[in-house]
Computed example of a mutant assay.
Amino acid sequence: MTPRTQGYLYVLITMLIWGGFTLTSRLNVKWGIEAWDITALRFALAFVILVPILIYKKDLAFLWKKEPFILAMIGGVGYCLTAYTAFHYVPAAHAAIFLNGFIPLCTAFAGFLIFKHAFDKHTWLSVIIMLASISAMSFLMYRETGVAFGLGDLLFVFSAMWWGVFSVLLRQWKLSAWHAMSGVAIWSAIVYLPIYLLFLPKHLSEPEPIHLVLQTLFHGICVVIIATLTYVEAIKRLGAFKTGSIVTLAPFLAAVIAVPVLGEPLSLAIICGLIGMAIGALQPWRWFGRKDSLQKQLEQQKKQSN
């Protein structure tokens, strides 16, 4: 299997998990699983799996640095609580628009505010497209329902902000995929679980046990561990831009699948928002004539051999 084929295989795995995250998070609402509970179960399972592995590998020293702790508070606890809570207020399509659609925009703004990374012309064009699509969607939603922007949408925007800052810090600090994933999961569990057990409401007796088991396994293993590792491996083989562009499609496809599977509405306003935010996030105009990192590396090796 060639490196490029491996890259697309890793992308496919990541897409399936990211799309599943959108659908299963919305399914939590139908199954009566609260955001507080799934967050606790997610980090508890990851903690139980990862700590013995780190002890066996004698690879615990990195946990005592400030970087894994900060990443856990932002991309772990902060992101999960706002994202899972938002699904209780709005359909899955809103997650594709206000969460996944806003992540590239929030990442660019975070890079500018924290490290003064200037916007390029592609980012500015994405900003214009996204703002135009959100304005059109809000106008249509107000005409249809009398509400242009709800609490769930605001929580998704906050989630995108958390993830944008998380992505910029992760890129700046250059942690390995294993250390980043392990640090976020373990520190999130250490900080969040005591707060959850002592102070937060619990509704673990209300959902069906099989539903709790399925959601815990998917979010604790697939989302936290597998998707992080496959995403990074795909970037190594295909490049960050191409990998990110393809994977970003997953939540938008999940939003469409949620219509027949979960019986969710798909109005003109939602369609407008999905199309506009997808174009802004994917930046399809950059695909033409753009070489990925693998192609550049092969060309460089060929020049050196000659």
Score class of each variant (00 low, 15 high):
E299P: 05
L193G: 09
V127W: 13
A46Y: 02
V90Y: 05
T39V: 08
P194L: 08
T228Q: 13
L71E: 03
L170E: 08
R26H: 06
S126L: 10
F87H: 12
Y231F: 12
S305E: 14
R171G: 15
L193S: 03
H122M: 13
A96H: 03
A269Q: 08
K236S: 11
G280K: 03
Q215S: 13
A278E: 11
L197R: 02
F199G: 12
L229Q: 13
Q304E: 15
V147Q: 13
T14E: 08
L16Q: 09
T22W: 11
I38Q: 04
F47K: 01
L249Y: 04
I13M: 07
A160T: 00
W173T: 10
N100H: 11
S245D: 10
F102I: 00
P104C: 07
M137F: 06
M181Y: 01
G273V: 01
K116E: 07
Q215P: 01
F102K: 00
G263Q: 01
W64V: 11
K236I: 08
K202W: 10
D120H: 13
F62D: 03
G101C: 02
G111K: 06
E67Y: 09
W36S: 10
A234V: 11
G111T: 02
A83E: 13
V224M: 11
A132E: 07
A269Y: 00
L60S: 09
K303S: 15
R26W: 10
M141Y: 12
H211Q: 14
C106F: 10
T39E: 00
S25E: 08
S305W: 08
W285A: 06
K303A: 14
T145S: 10
L99P: 01
L23A: 07
V224S: 14
L16E: 05
K174G: 11
V232T: 14
I235C: 03
I17N: 03
T39R: 06
A234E: 03
S167H: 02
Q295F: 14
G220V: 01
Q301C: 09
T5K: 13
G76K: 01
K303F: 11
S176H: 09
S167C: 02
L197G: 11
I134W: 06
A93Y: 01
A92D: 05
K57D: 14
G239C: 06
Q300H: 14
R290S: 15
H117A: 11
G152F: 05
F112S: 05
L63K: 03
F119I: 05
V224W: 04
R143Q: 15
S205E: 14
F199I: 04
S188K: 05
S135N: 02
F115Q: 04
S176G: 15
K58W: 04
G220S: 04
L99W: 04
L63T: 02
F112I: 07
Q295L: 11
T123N: 12
D292M: 08
Q300T: 14
L170W: 07
G150A: 11
F102S: 09
S267Q: 07
T248C: 12
F87V: 12
R171F: 03
A95Y: 03
A95C: 10
I190Y: 05
W285R: 09
S126I: 05
K65N: 15
F102L: 09
G20W: 06
L27R: 10
E233P: 04
L200N: 04
W124F: 14
I210H: 15
V191A: 05
W285I: 10
L23K: 12
A86W: 06
A160E: 04
K291L: 14
V213G: 09
K58E: 10
I270Q: 09
L175A: 09
G289Y: 01
I97L: 02
S138G: 13
E299T: 00
